[in-house]
Design a protein around this nucleic acid. Structure first.
Lengths: 144, 144
DNA sequence: TTTTAATCAGATAAAAAAATCTGATTTAGT
DNA sequence: ACTAAATCAGATTTTTTTATCTGATTAAAA
């Protein structure tokens, strides 16, 4: 089971990081992304479409086409990708699955859990793709 | 989407908390739990069976039967329930979905994320059902 | 202008998770 | 013994998520 992000979202972040790490090159095909990340081409294509629709990356059709970042990597936050694919419910939904969990009617974990979620949110909101593009190359290479 | 625990696990925790909050009474029927937590009886029955199998609660069959905690509530940690239902993968799997994420071949989020997961683990391991049984009553009553 | 290689769009299939159903078993009380 | 009320066990259905397929469109290059 995915721990916090959907599989789609995990792979979406991976793909955007890959695009960022390939700076200088015009566009990257979905096939290359699929090969490098060792995931099915068809699946990543769908995800790249969604990310294109939400304006995080842009696409160039036709032969020699492919995908590239739509903005400067220091303007793309991890949070943007998460919200685009999974939405923002995870930042407000109850960890124990109770409805209407809030400071008025908190679940028993509410207090401590809120702090963890706030930190997560902060992390995703602070970190930009730019901060990560070098780190990710190492990881991708380790996939051999 | 469930944020970190499966729906099964969320409801399992809710049910165990409910049992803890009903101390003094012999056994509680799955029907009562379902009514109080506003969830389907059949689903919670399945979950209660699993929790019985893993020794967290115990069951009494037949008329006047039902479920009760298998041990003292200060001996049952939230972690026990989580591991029994969802397993312990969430504490070691990569937040970005990369394989073999570790300090040797970390993903870009590995460092910061590990800290959050460690805190979560600590919280689940420290807190016992006992600590929560009073808090949960308020929440359950608010479900009206 | 034709071929080729790419995205795009939407349908479909497969897998996993969540929820429900059915019947068997157990046990207290009459 | 019989009945009623509960768990137990496992099959089935539904829903959601994940993954795949197919055909259309686009655009570069021969």
């Amino acid at each position: 089971m995915a721990i916090i992000f959907s599989r789609k979202c995990e792979l979406g972040i991976q793909a955007v990081l890959y695009l960022a790490s390939a700076e200088g090159r015009e566009v990257i095909s979905s096939e290359e992304i699929a090969n490098e990340l060792k995931i099915p081409k068809e699946f990543i294509s769908k995800i790249l479409q969604e990310l294109t629709a939400s304006g995080i990356i842009s696409s160039k059709k036709g032969k020699m086409g492919g995908f590239s970042l739509a903005k400067n990597p220091n303007k793309i936050h991890l949070l943007d990708i998460v919200v685009a694919i999974d939405g923002s419910d995870i930042f407000s939904s109850c960890v124990l699955g109770f409805p209407n969990c809030s400071s008025e009617t908190p679940c028993p974990m509410h207090g401590r859990w809120s702090k963890l979620i706030d930190e997560t949110y902060k992390m995703l909101n602070e970190e930009t793709i730019d901060n990560y593009k070098n780190k990710v190359l190492r990881k991708i290479n380790s996939l051999k």
